[in-house]
Amino acid sequence: MAAAAAAGAGPEMVRGQVFDVGPRYTNLSYIGEGAYGMVCSAYDNVNKVRVAIKKISPFEHQTYCQRTLREIKILLRFRHENIIGINDIIRAPTIEQMKDVYIVQDLMETDLYKLLKTQHLSNDHICYFLYQILRGLKYIHSANVLHRDLKPSNLLLNTTCDLKICDFGLARVADPDHDHTGFLTEYVATRWYRAPEIMLNSKGYTKSIDIWSVGCILAEMLSNRPIFPGKHYLDQLNHILGILGSPSQEDLNCIINLKARNYLLSLPHKNKVPWNRLFPNADSKALDLLDKMLTFNPHKRIEVEQALAHPYLEQYYDPSDEPIAEAPFKFDMELDDLPKEKLKELIFEETARFQPGYRS
């Protein structure tokens, strides 16, 4: 834990890192770190609560700039109880001085990944967590956004079992017609939660990839272990087919990539493993919904509104309290091709509203 900075004593240090967030945020305490930044909790002297502050230093890398800009653009436009918001952003007053960006968010005690390492969940908890994931996802999908990296560590939890989806750095506007060349190379989302079509096709992607990830998360809540822990690309596919069985001819016809289709045709026939054999203690309604989410063919996979209306979630289902976005989200430009200098300018502009004396 960093010592509390005395008023006016300059930035606090946390594990050798400068955290320049005073005077409003003090009493910093280390939480963890990701690929390009550290997260601390801090005391907000204005709202009198502890908050989470993520320090991001992305400006050396085009990919990190892209992810940072995506996350900020999306989260500043989203407003939903099951999606983490941005409360404040701290950065230098000029673009030349801006080396880091500090993002202030609600402090959540833990995440689903940490929880599943230590606790076996009751059916009631599984049901409530799944409902909140789908409630947040309904809003995301209504904005025409794909999260693309749903996994237990991106689901934040607090002691009252509130759940918030975080990390929109890989999110995209849904565009089933656009052929994202190089899709697989830039697709760094965790393999275990990846839909089979991501490994088999490169053309376009749809909201059904997020539903697949939610199915993987439900299976993990039922058993405290990942359902498809593939060691590499082909191993991942083999794990999936080992449980779902061989795809039907109709399902194979959806695979545009001939090499991928021929690979699947070359494999020995596998039978589907019954879900109640894998999860003998699970609620039968939970397994019915799991089956509809972990469907090989993305066109037959359940959609988020149908999933919310499934009998497993009937005690929570309330369409009048499951809000959607006001308007579909649009990125003005494809960020993939922009140089990091341009992305830095866009991050600077996007964060201006939090600067003292800002006038829109």
Rank of each mutant, 00 (worst) to 15 (best):
Ala2Lys: 00
Ala5Tyr: 00
Ala6Gly: 07
Gly10Gln: 06
Gly10Asn: 06
Glu12Trp: 01
Val14Gly: 15
Arg15Glu: 02
Arg15Ala: 05
Gly16Cys: 10
Gln17Trp: 01
Gln17Arg: 10
Val18Trp: 00
Phe19Arg: 08
Asp20Val: 14
Asp20Trp: 04
Asp20Thr: 02
Gly22Ile: 01
Gly22Ala: 12
Gly22Trp: 11
Pro23Phe: 00
Arg24Lys: 00
Thr26Ile: 15
Ser29Ala: 07
Ile31Asn: 14
Gly32Val: 14
Glu33Arg: 07
Glu33Thr: 07
Glu33Asp: 14
Gly34Trp: 13
Gly34Pro: 03
Ala35Glu: 11
Tyr36Asn: 15
Cys40Arg: 15
Cys40Leu: 04
Cys40Asn: 10
Cys40Pro: 15
Ala42Phe: 03
Asn45Asp: 07
Asn45His: 12
Asn47Glu: 10
Ile53Phe: 14
Lys54Ser: 08
Ile56Asp: 15
Ile56Ala: 15
Ser57Cys: 12
Ser57Thr: 14
Phe59Trp: 08
Phe59Arg: 15
Glu60Trp: 10
His61Arg: 12
Tyr64Ser: 14
Cys65Met: 10
Arg67Lys: 14
Thr68Arg: 14
Thr68Leu: 12
Leu69Ile: 05
Glu71Asp: 12
Ile74Leu: 11
Arg77Val: 00
Arg77Ala: 03
Arg77Phe: 09
Phe78Tyr: 15
Phe78Lys: 04
Arg79Glu: 04
His80Leu: 15
Asn82Cys: 08
Asn82Ser: 11
Ile83Thr: 04
Ile83Pro: 01
Ile84Asn: 14
Ile86Trp: 15
Ile90Ser: 01
Pro93Val: 01
Pro93Tyr: 00
Ile95Asn: 14
Ile95Val: 00
Lys99Ser: 05
Lys99Val: 04
Lys99Leu: 05
Asp100Pro: 13
Asp100Tyr: 14
Val101Cys: 07
Val101Phe: 07
Val101Ala: 13
Val101Leu: 15
Ile103Phe: 14
Ile103Glu: 13
Ile103Trp: 15
Val104Asn: 03
Val104Arg: 06
Gln105Ser: 10
Leu107Val: 10
Leu107Thr: 04
Leu107Gln: 14
Leu107Gly: 01
Asp111Gln: 03
Asp111Arg: 03
Leu112Cys: 08
Leu112Thr: 04
Lys114Asn: 15
Lys114Ala: 10
Leu116Ser: 13
Leu116Asn: 02
Thr118Gln: 08
His120Gln: 14
His120Thr: 08
Ser122Arg: 14
Ile126Cys: 05
Cys127Ile: 15
Tyr128Ile: 05
Tyr128Asp: 01
Leu130Val: 11
Arg135Phe: 02
Arg135Lys: 01
Gly136His: 01
Gly136Tyr: 01
Tyr139Ile: 07
Ser142Met: 05
Val145Tyr: 02
Val145Gly: 11
Leu146Lys: 05
His147Tyr: 12
His147Glu: 04
Leu150Val: 02
Lys151Glu: 10
Lys151Thr: 13
Lys151Pro: 00
Pro152Met: 05
Asn154Cys: 05
Leu155Cys: 10
Leu155His: 01
Leu155Lys: 08
Leu156Glu: 08
Leu157His: 04
Leu157Ser: 03
Asn158Tyr: 13
Thr159Trp: 03
Thr159Asn: 13
Thr160Lys: 12
Thr160His: 11
Thr160Met: 03
Cys161Gln: 09
Asp162Arg: 08
Asp162Ala: 11
Asp162Tyr: 14
Leu163Gln: 15
Ile165Ser: 01
Cys166Ser: 15
Cys166Pro: 05
Cys166Thr: 08
Phe168Asn: 06
Leu170Arg: 07
Leu170Val: 00
Ala171Tyr: 01
Ala171Phe: 03
Val173Ser: 08
Ala174His: 06
Pro176Lys: 06
Pro176Leu: 11
His178Met: 08
Asp179Val: 15
His180Ala: 09
His180Tyr: 11
Gly182Met: 04
Gly182Ala: 08
Phe183Trp: 01
Leu184Asp: 12
Leu184Met: 14
Leu184Cys: 11
Thr185Cys: 10
Glu186Leu: 09
Ala189Phe: 04
Thr190Val: 09
Thr190Asp: 04
Arg191Ala: 05
Arg194Ala: 08
Ala195Ser: 13
Pro196Met: 05
Ile198Trp: 11
Leu200His: 06
Leu200Lys: 08
Ser202Phe: 10
Ser202Gly: 10
Gly204Phe: 01
Tyr205Arg: 10
Thr206Gln: 06
Ser208Gln: 07
Ile209Asp: 10
Asp210Arg: 07
Ile211Glu: 10
Trp212Ala: 03
Ser213Ile: 11
Val214Ala: 00
Val214Asn: 03
Cys216Met: 08
Ile217Thr: 00
Ile217Leu: 08
Ile217Cys: 10
Ile217Ser: 13
Ile217Val: 00
Ile217Asp: 04
Leu218Ser: 10
Ala219Thr: 13
Ala219Trp: 11
Glu220Val: 13
Glu220Arg: 07
Ser223Trp: 10
Arg225Pro: 11
Ile227Leu: 12
Lys231Cys: 08
Lys231Val: 03
His232Lys: 02
Asp235Tyr: 14
Gln236Asn: 05
Asn238Val: 05
His239Lys: 07
Ile240Ser: 00
Ile243Phe: 15
Ile243Asn: 13
Leu244Thr: 03
Ser246Leu: 05
Gln249Pro: 06
Glu250Asn: 01
Leu252Gly: 06
Asn253Gly: 09
Cys254Val: 07
Ile255Leu: 08
Ile256Pro: 02
Asn257Val: 06
Asn257Arg: 09
Asn257Phe: 12
Ala260Cys: 08
Ala260Arg: 04
Arg261Thr: 06
Asn262Phe: 07
Asn262Glu: 12
Asn262Met: 06
Leu264Asp: 01
Leu265His: 04
Leu265Met: 12
His269Trp: 05
Lys272Leu: 11
Val273Ser: 10
Pro274Ala: 10
Trp275Thr: 09
Trp275Ile: 11
Trp275Ser: 11
Arg277Glu: 11
Phe279Lys: 05
Pro280Asp: 05
Asp283Gln: 08
Asp283Ile: 11
Asp283Pro: 04
Leu289Asn: 05
Leu290Lys: 04
Leu290Thr: 02
Asp291Gln: 11
Asp291Tyr: 14
Asp291Pro: 06
Asp291Trp: 06
Met293Phe: 05
Leu294Gly: 04
Leu294Lys: 04
Leu294Met: 12
Phe296Leu: 15
His299Glu: 01
Lys300Asp: 08
Lys300Glu: 02
Arg301Ile: 14
Arg301Tyr: 02
Glu303Ser: 03
Glu303Ala: 11
Val304Asn: 06
Glu305Arg: 06
Gln306Ser: 04
Pro311Asp: 07
Tyr312Val: 06
Tyr312Thr: 12
Leu313Val: 09
Leu313Trp: 06
Gln315Phe: 01
Gln315Trp: 00
Tyr316Leu: 07
Tyr316Ala: 05
Asp318Met: 07
Pro319Tyr: 06
Pro319Cys: 07
Ser320Thr: 14
Ser320Glu: 04
Glu326His: 01
Glu326Asp: 15
Ala327Met: 04
Ala327Lys: 06
Phe329Cys: 00
Phe329Trp: 07
Lys330Thr: 00
Phe331Met: 01
Phe331Gly: 00
Asp332Gly: 10
Asp332Thr: 04
Asp336Gly: 00
Asp336Trp: 10
Pro339Asp: 08
Pro339Arg: 11
Pro339Trp: 06
Lys340Val: 03
Lys342Arg: 01
Lys342Asn: 15
Lys344Asp: 12
Lys344Tyr: 09
Leu346Ala: 06
Ile347Tyr: 15
Ile347His: 11
Phe348Leu: 13
Phe348Asp: 09
Glu349Trp: 01
Glu350Asn: 02
Thr351Ile: 11
Ala352Trp: 06
Phe354Glu: 11
Phe354Lys: 11
Gly357Phe: 08
Tyr358Leu: 10
